[in-house]
Amino acid sequence: MLKGLGNLGDMAKMMAKAQEFQAKMAEAQAAVEALEVEGEAGAGLVKAWVSGKGELKRLAIDPTLFVPEDREAVEDLVVAAIKTAQERAAEAAQAEMAKAAEGLPLPPGMKLPF
């Protein structure tokens, strides 16, 4: 009578998987937003903290660096600390997304979020 509709169960399973994936992705995105990652330069004389999305949150500069002749070196260290923190934040965000996608049949090397 309802011949041809036998695959509806498969479709329902697929939809349930999609909703499960969506929930996992939302959790992963919330975890990424809550991340705060530290980067440093100059053996810790300059430190920068960024969010999981790479947004600069805090900056700490050791007071011994405040010598007028060293201004350019300090600026370089600040940039290096921020860059390190942003790279670490990107790695941490990717790891969170990978955890959310664990067990899903995604193509190799596919990066999340899409």
Rank of each mutant, 00 (worst) to 15 (best):
A93H: 00
L59V: 05
V79C: 11
A26R: 04
A95P: 00
A98S: 12
M11F: 13
K99W: 04
E38I: 09
I61A: 13
L77S: 02
G54Y: 01
A16Q: 12
G109A: 05
P63H: 09
V67D: 07
L2Q: 11
A90F: 08
E102Q: 13
A98E: 08
Q29M: 10
G9V: 03
A101L: 05
E75W: 07
A81Q: 05
L2G: 11
A92F: 00
E96Q: 12
A18M: 14
V67C: 03
Q19T: 11
K3F: 14
L106P: 04
D10V: 10
A16V: 06
E69N: 05
V32C: 04
A81Y: 01
M1S: 13
G4R: 03
M110R: 14
Q86M: 08
V67G: 05
V74S: 00
A23W: 05
E38H: 15
A41N: 02
M11E: 13
K17C: 08
V32R: 02
Q19R: 14
A23V: 04
F66A: 09
K57E: 08
E38G: 13
G52Q: 01
K13N: 12
E75C: 10
R58Q: 15
G109S: 03
F66V: 03
A90T: 03
S51F: 03
P63E: 08
I82C: 10
E27Y: 06
G6T: 06
E72K: 13
A90G: 09
K111T: 11
Q19F: 10
A81K: 03
A34M: 08
V32H: 00
G4P: 02
L5I: 09
A90K: 11
D62N: 14
L45M: 15
W49K: 13
A92Y: 00
L59Q: 07
F21R: 12
A60E: 15
D70N: 15
G109E: 00
A101T: 02
L104P: 08
P113F: 03
E91N: 14
K99R: 08
A23S: 10
L65Y: 03
G42R: 01
A95V: 00
G54Q: 01
E72C: 09
K99A: 01
A100G: 01
A26C: 04
V50W: 02
F66M: 10
E75R: 11
M1C: 11
P113K: 03
P105L: 06
A41P: 02
K13H: 09
G9R: 09
R88S: 09
L45W: 12
G6D: 12
A101G: 06
E91K: 15
M14A: 15
L106A: 12
L106F: 14
P113G: 00
M1W: 13
R71Y: 13
E96I: 04
E33C: 04
M25K: 08
E87H: 10
A34P: 03
D10W: 07
V37A: 08
K17W: 09
F114Q: 14
A23D: 05
